[in-house]
Design a binder for these strands. Structure first.
Length: 736
DNA sequence: AAGGCCCTTCTTTTT
DNA sequence: GAAGGGCCTT
């Protein structure tokens, strides 16, 4: 409709936005406060490049932070540019890298059918590595080891370059080495490899780099504050020819430090790219001034940031409601009741609401409350779908069809449904695999093809060879079917071959649910009928957790504060505003992490257009025992005049009376004479104080063989700790 | 080999 | 308090 006035869309921009969209060539840094029309600037910048500066769409690369953001931008670009938008390279850093790696597989230590290991697979790989090195996973927690490895990878440190500073590092180094070996043997990469291998590809093959850097005349990056070192490096490489790089970000919304993100990339950008044009967007088009003032109050206490003054012309709006609930059940009930009342009054609809929380575990009580109230809801992330056993099983089968070297998937489903392949057979298989330098999958294929004639047949005891060969036969069929059948046919074929429906749909209600999830996955596969298995698997690995599938069009959204970045809702609930939860106890000792918790809260607040409800609970259970909560320190940073307090008000007497009545230690008075010999001094539920960690609640306590009392305490400050009573100077707090 | 029961463990956030 | 691992029986 703009054929005659192709640049009509520019009319609606404010002066700063206009400056950004129409800037000339060279590096441009846009610092965009929340709700300042950042996405609009990005999309219109692309449209401007194409329509006004005559850049061909396939010379443009745009990088977003999530797949969801990419889809949204694709959609907007379609309206602005029509068919031309198809040839723009658009996606997350990870997706773009996967695409490059598949094209350039010839230069790489894996082939183009490589699979992408998701978070669970990565942990499973660490487990395998620990096992191969004879290390105890109780001593070296796989998740912790993996975090260290991933951190190293994000800083482009190879296993060889990894310099141990502690004994634990020595172990990490060995596991890291083994882990990488396993990845390559599996013809697999992890999330970090997608980025690292692309950087390596470019550094080691200048002609390849030249092809891409030459092609991408313009590179645009969203959420720049959350890029890590590898991504920054990649950006420098990709823009090394044309230097036309347009980045948009906001230090105050940097919330992925723990994943290696470094908002100081913004500073680095200013100093490393010559003649950066810097543009500050401060006008907010989303929220009321009350919301903005509260958010500013919170964020202004952080240092090391570009000071901003967010303003809105939407007026003061409604005060922020602060509700104090008695416990976490009352917290959930308050949220759901309030939403229900709004909906019933006809003044709001379900989709107007979002409920945000710090940890995924907090969603459970909300879900239950919504279910009880009969209100449909939409839960973002949290493995709702992709984490399900049945979904993972079917994906594992599909991955094996694509890449039989994928040992993680093989181990997952080799005996699903149970087909008599147990520990013994597996060990024999893995042993032979190592001996013959083949993957277990390949051995199975050979057994399946040749049967008795295979030289390996005799290596397996009893009927084990036959069972393995049977499964190998299935694998071989799927391999062939991959090229001859459509994705859906392959999907159905696999399920039929293994009898998956009968296995999973056992007649129970749960079984039916599980089968429906499989059907859901099948519907999703159907959408890939054109692009095929490989595209399907890639998207599953890269999209999965953050995007939930079909949304209930008119339902409230439940999501973590992290997942809320980039979204907006008329009414926002933020729950769990207690010390230890928001800010999270794990952040207490590190000022940088504490600053990030603050930014997280800031991100949550600034998602709201009209109304914010802040909710906390006076008591909350941790490990099954109720623990009294202190209000979040962030609440004190919101001007009292912006708040409207509701709910249970703490008076010293009522709270302590309640505690006294319920405390197990007051119900069963310990007898001092026996306590010294047989009974623990501390009991679950009892309040204690530690000289360093402050107050906490006893979760468990027992007398060891040596007569020492071991006490498990959940501290408000540091979380769970196990101490020896006679050493840790614990002090019992009497519930007066 | 598989399923059941008891015990320990332990809660950030995710491409 | 729930989930996952280890150990038991069949």
């Amino acid at each position: 409709m703009f054929e005659n006035q192709p640049l009509d869309f520019l009319k609606h921009l404010n002066p700063e936005q206009y400056r950004a969209v129409t800037a000339g060539e060279g590096p441009i840094l846009v610092l965009a406060g929340p709700g300042s029309g950042k996405t609009r600037v990005l999309t219109q910048r692309i449209a401007y490049l194409v329509k006004a500066m005559g850049v061909r769409p396939h010379h443009i690369l745009a990088v977003t932070f999530t797949n969801k953001a990419a889809r949204e931008m694709q959609h907007r670009l379609e309206t602005l540019l029509g068919e031309q938008s198809q040839s723009i390279w658009l996606g997350t850093f990870h997706a773009v890298c996967a695409r490059i790696l598949r094209r350039e597989a010839a230069y790489l230590p894996f082939d183009q059918n490589f699979v992408i290991m998701d978070a669970d697979d990565q942990i499973a790989l660490v487990r395998q590595a620990l096992k191969a090195l004879n290390l105890d996973e109780k001593l070296y927690r796989p998740a912790g080891i993996h975090a260290t490895i991933s951190m190293a990878k994000n800083n482009l440190i190879t296993p060889e370059e990894f310099t141990p500073r502690t004994y634990r590092d020595e172990v990490v180094k060995r596991v890291y080495q083994q882990y990488q070996t396993f990845l390559r043997n599996n013809n697999a990469v992890d999330f970090d490899d997608l980025l690292i291998e692309t950087v390596r590809l470019f550094r080691e093959n200048p002609p390849v780099l030249e092809r891409y850097a030459g092609r991408f005349e313009h590179v645009l990056v969203d959420e720049f504050q959350d890029t890590n070192l590898v991504q920054y490096e990649l950006l420098k490489l990709l823009t090394s020819v044309h230097q036309n790089v347009f980045v948009v970000g906001d230090e105050d919304q940097s919330i992925y430090r723990w994943r290696g993100a470094d908002y100081r990339n913004v500073l680095r950008f200013e100093s490393e790219f010559p003649d950066v044009q810097k543009i500050l967007l401060q006008q907010n088009y989303r929220s009321t001034q009350t919301v903005l003032d509260a958010a500013q109050g919170v964020i202004n206490r952080n240092h090391q940031r570009t000071p901003k003054r967010l303003f809105s012309d939407r007026g003061r709006g409604e005060p922020i409601v602060l509700y104090e609930a008695v416990d976490e059940f009352a917290e959930a009930t308050f949220v759901v009741d309030t939403i229900r009342q709004w909906i019933e009054s006809g003044k709001a609809r379900g989709s107007d609401f979002a409920v945000m929380y710090r940890t995924n575990a907090q969603s459970r009580l909300l879900e239950e409350a919504f279910l009880r109230a009969g209100i449909p809801y939409h839960l973002v992330g949290a493995q709702r779908f992709y984490g399900r056993r049945e979904v993972k099983d079917v994906i594992a089968f599909l991955r094996l069809a694509q890449n039989p070297d994928d040992e993680i998937s093989l181990l997952r489903v080799i005996n699903v449904p149970p087909r008599g392949i147990g520990e013994k057979s597996l060990v024999a298989l893995q042993l032979l695999a190592r001996e013959t330098h083949q993957s277990p999958g390949h051995l199975l294929l050979e057994l399946g093809e040749k049967g008795h004639d295979s030289p390996y047949w005799a290596r397996f005891p009893g009927r084990s060879a036959m069972l393995l060969a049977d499964f190998g036969g299935l694998l071989a069929n799927w391999q062939r079917a991959r090229d001859t059948l459509s994705l859906i046919e392959l999907f159905d074929r696999i399920l039929a071959d293994v009898g998956y429906e009968a296995y999973i749909n056992d007649g129970s209600e749960e079984g039916q649910d599980r089968w429906e999830n499989v059907q859901e996955l099948r519907r999703l596969a159907f959408e890939y009928r054109e692009r095929g298995l490989s595209a399907f698997l890639e998207d599953l690995a890269l999209v999965s957790d953050q995007d939930t599938l079909p949304q209930d069009q008119n339902a409230p959204t439940l999501l973590t504060l992290h997942a809320a970045k980039g979204l907006e809702f008329p009414q926002v609930f933020i729950i769990g505003l207690d010390e230890g939860l928001l800010p999270h106890s794990r952040s207490r000792d590190d000022p940088e992490e504490m600053a990030e918790e603050r930014r997280l809260f800031y991100v949550g607040l600034t998602r709201a257009k009209d109304r914010v409800y802040l909710v906390r609970a006076l008591r909350r259970s941790a490990y099954g025992v109720a623990v009294e909560q202190e209000p979040s320190r962030f609440l004190a940073d919101i001007d009292e005049r912006l708040l409207q307090r509701q709910g249970y008000r703490r008076t010293r007497s009522s709270a302590t009376t309640w505690a006294a009545e319920r405390s197990p230690s007051s119900r069963v008075p310990p007898s001092p004479a026996h306590a010294a010999i047989l009974q623990p001094r501390y009991r679950p539920g009892q309040r204690v104080r530690h000289p360093a960690w402050g107050e906490g609640m006893v979760v468990d306590s027992r007398i060891q063989e040596d007569g020492e009392e071991t006490v498990d305490v959940f501290f408000e400050s540091v979380g769970f700790k196990r101490v020896i009573a006679s050493i840790a100077r614990l002090e019992a707090i009497n519930p007066d």
